[in-house]
């Protein structure tokens, strides 16, 4: 009996040893694969910044080196201060449109999500599933009539038209995501607030939204980044140079910049850094928000 037990034990010990060794090798292999793909993921980003920070002459080297001979901020200051390129104006326009869209999305999206998560009303299912359906609309399908109707309303070259379009395009997934988030909050607190005479708007504003702050952070991040990065609608709806946002402003300078890639990528870097920083800062909420939003759905 005794030998039997010790036999089992020693057997288990050797197996543990082998296991640990396998785990070590598996970890090393994982790191190798992950680093390989991390380099691929980062390389274009790195190359953009490298072109922006290298001396302007080096962008026309016939054999560009991975690392530039020296770093300079000359390209960045040149595009910011250039009289020919209203970069600052584009940047301001992008900030205005993206911030307005984000605020609208949070207010309107949380209302819709609250109705879907907590209330019962006629047409609730239709409302929910029509939101899913709308996700499938090709942007190209909307763009022609949108152009025609906004031209009639005088909303071409107008931030209001652009923000409303962006807000609506963000709403379907925002409402679904926040709905999942609201469902994860216990409803007892809201009931208590209701009994104390709080209106629905009061409950939403004072109870639900503070508790759903991480979900709101996720939604706001996505809405901000989506509007900052949108191209097609801005491309069609805005053609006045002073009203251009970064996406189309940059694209319209591509031809002009065939002689100045350093300047182009200095602008690209300045365009990209805000969204990458926003994503990095809020990615914790983003992952958490996506998880809660989808698991509870």
């Amino acid at each position: 009996m005794a030998t039997n037990t010790s036999g089992v034990r020693s057997n288990r010990f050797t197996r543990m040893g082998r296991r640990q060794r396998t785990k070590l090798w598996a970890d090393i292999a994982s790191y190798v694969v992950i680093f390989f793909f991390a380099i691929i993921a980062l390389f274009p980003f790195f190359w953009m910044i490298r072109t922006a920070l290298a001396p302007a002459t080096e962008s026309f080297a016939l054999k560009p080196k991975l690392l530039p001979s020296s770093l300079t901020f000359e390209n960045l200051t040149r595009v910011i201060t250039s009289p020919n390129v209203p970069f600052i104006k584009y940047f301001q326009n992008s900030v205005v449109v993206s911030v307005a869209t984000t605020l609208l999305v949070i207010v309107v999206g949380s209302w819709g999500a609250y109705a879907l998560a907590r209330l019962t009303f006629k047409g609730q299912r239709a409302f929910g599933s029509s939101l899913l359906l709308i996700q499938m609309f090709p942007g190209i399908l909307l763009i022609i009539p949108l152009y025609v109707i906004l031209a009639k309303l005088g909303l071409i070259n107008n931030f209001v038209g652009l923000s409303v379009a962006y807000t609506t395009l963000n709403l379907p997934f925002v409402v679904w995501l926040l709905r999942g988030y609201f469902l994860s909050i216990p409803s007892e607190i809201e009931d208590a607030a209701r009994i104390d005479g709080c209106t629905y708007f009061g409950v939403l504003w004072r109870v639900v939204l503070p508790l759903a702050a991480p979900g709101l952070a996720a939604v706001a991040t996505l809405a901000f980044v989506n509007s900052w990065n949108e191209f097609l609608i801005a491309y069609v709806l805005i053609n006045d140079d002073s009203q251009k946002v970064l996406s189309i402003g940059l694209a319209s300078y591509v031809d002009q910049f065939t002689t100045d890639y350093s300047g182009l990528f200095a602008m690209a870097t300045l365009t990209t850094l805000p969204v990458v920083i926003v994503f990095m800062v809020f990615q914790r909420y983003l992952v958490g928000g996506l998880t809660t939003g989808s698991v509870k759905g």
Binding site: L141, L142, Y200
Partner: peptide
Amino acid sequence: IAYFLIAPTMLGIAVVNVYPLLDT
């Protein structure tokens, strides 16, 4: 309350999605 809460969403969708779909 529910209809007031979903009204802005529905309005936006009507202008930016449904009308353009029908018009297309």
